[in-house]
Each structure stands twice: as C-alpha cells, then as structure tokens.
Amino acid sequence: MQRSALIPERQSLILPFMAAVVGHVGVALFLGLLMLLAGLRRGPILDPNDIMEVSMVVLPKTESRMPERATRAPVPSGEEAPTAPQPKPPVESDLAVVQPDAPKAEGTPDQSDRRADLMRDLRRKQLLADAAAEIGAVDREASDPDSTTDQAVNTGGAGAAADPELALWVQKVREKFMANFHPLPTIVSANPNIEATVAVRIDEAGNVLSRSMHKASGNPSYDAAAERAADAVTQVPPPPEKYRDTEHTLAIRFSQ
C-alpha cells in the first residue's frame, strides 16, 4: 500500500528533474558559448575589467602547493598518513573537503566535487585576500622614499608582509621593470596621475612569453617609455613555488 502510494509521487518528480537536467545543460552550454565569445573578443592577455580585480591576487592552481590551511589534520613528518578510511585518489586536489558519504537519490548529479570546489575556492580567496592586503601595503610603502619596507621584508620585522617570500618576489619583479622605466620628467610632472599598464605573460620559470599594452595612458611618450621598459625585460624571477603556475600574467602598472 505504501509502496504503490509512492509511485505516483515518484512519477511527479520525473518532470521537474528532467527539466532541471535540461535547464542545467542548456545554461551550461549558454555560459560556455558566452565565455568562448568573451575569450575571442578579449584578444589581449587581460580583460580590461578583470585586471583591477586581480590586484595582487595570486591564484595557486595546484592545491597541494597551498600553505598550511588544510582542513585535514596534519600528518606528522616522518610518519605515513593513516590508511583508513581510504581517501579517494587525488584527482584535482588533495585539499578538497572530504564529505561524508551520503545516500544519493538515483539520477541526482553528484554535487560533492562542486561543493568541494566551492569550499576550496573560498579558502583560497581568503588566503589570497590576506596576501593581497599585505602586499598592497608593501606596494604603497615601496613608493615612499622614507619607507623601511625593504628592511622589514628582509628581517621579518613588524612591518613584514604576511608572506615575505611573495613580497620579496614582487619587489624583485618591480625592480626589473623599474630599472628600464625612463619617462620624460616633463611628462610626469605635468601629469601627476598618469599611468599605463602593460600585460606581461610569463611561464613558470619567469621567462617572458609576450607583452602587450593593456591600458595606455594616452600620452604617446609615456606609453612608449612603459613599453620600452617592458620590452627590456626578458625574464623575471620565478614566482614563489607555492604560487607557481604554468603561466602567469603580470599587470605592470607604470605610474608615479
């Protein structure tokens, strides 16, 4: 009785479920098409709207390189990780949140990977926000002639960035481009807020793959000085290992 009573209810769920599947696939295809079009239209390395959002944001792709914010209990060094319960073979990430196995409705898409992605992404964003905030401070201080940032980074003093390794790398990259940046003083003094951003793609070893003017200042002389400075750099130090990726984009903002 009970069994037969459930049948109509199950049947009533089929239609919404099918609609959800069709909707999901449709939306995914639609979004994919949009992304493809955006990618084709984008052309240059960086989307003009993206660049400000990624200010000093570092997105480690391989989660195994992430620093100590793992959700798993740390494994004591020199010991093997416990074998039971058997973890899933690491496919994308060994830091993915392990969800207890829950019974799944037949035919329901498995959302656990996506949830793990979401959690991982949130954790990553938090980490990067911390790093960005600290490096932002370093950035501002570096332009201050009275700054003691270099010392702080080197000594790990009170003013050191949360990640001195990253701050130090940023400083080295900055110096590479700064060494060749020679705008005419007349242009600079007449335009105190002038700035030009050149997008520089590098590989994981720091070799420059390509450069392009991302956001011109509108002043041909200043833009030419920025481009010359970027052209003169063929290699930068590789990013710190934990942030390293197969490819990075450096948005080099030439300003005052």
Binding site: V57, V58, L59, R174, F181, R244, D245, E247, H248, I252
Partner: peptide, 12 residues
C-alpha cells in the same frame, strides 16, 4: 585561472 599579479612600477 592563471595566477595574476598587479605590480606598480614608478620612475623612482
């Protein structure tokens, strides 16, 4: 997403 960095450079 490739890692991206915004780095400020000034004439110094």
């Amino acid at each position: 997403e490739a890692a991206s960095f915004l780095i400020n450079v000034n004439p110094g």
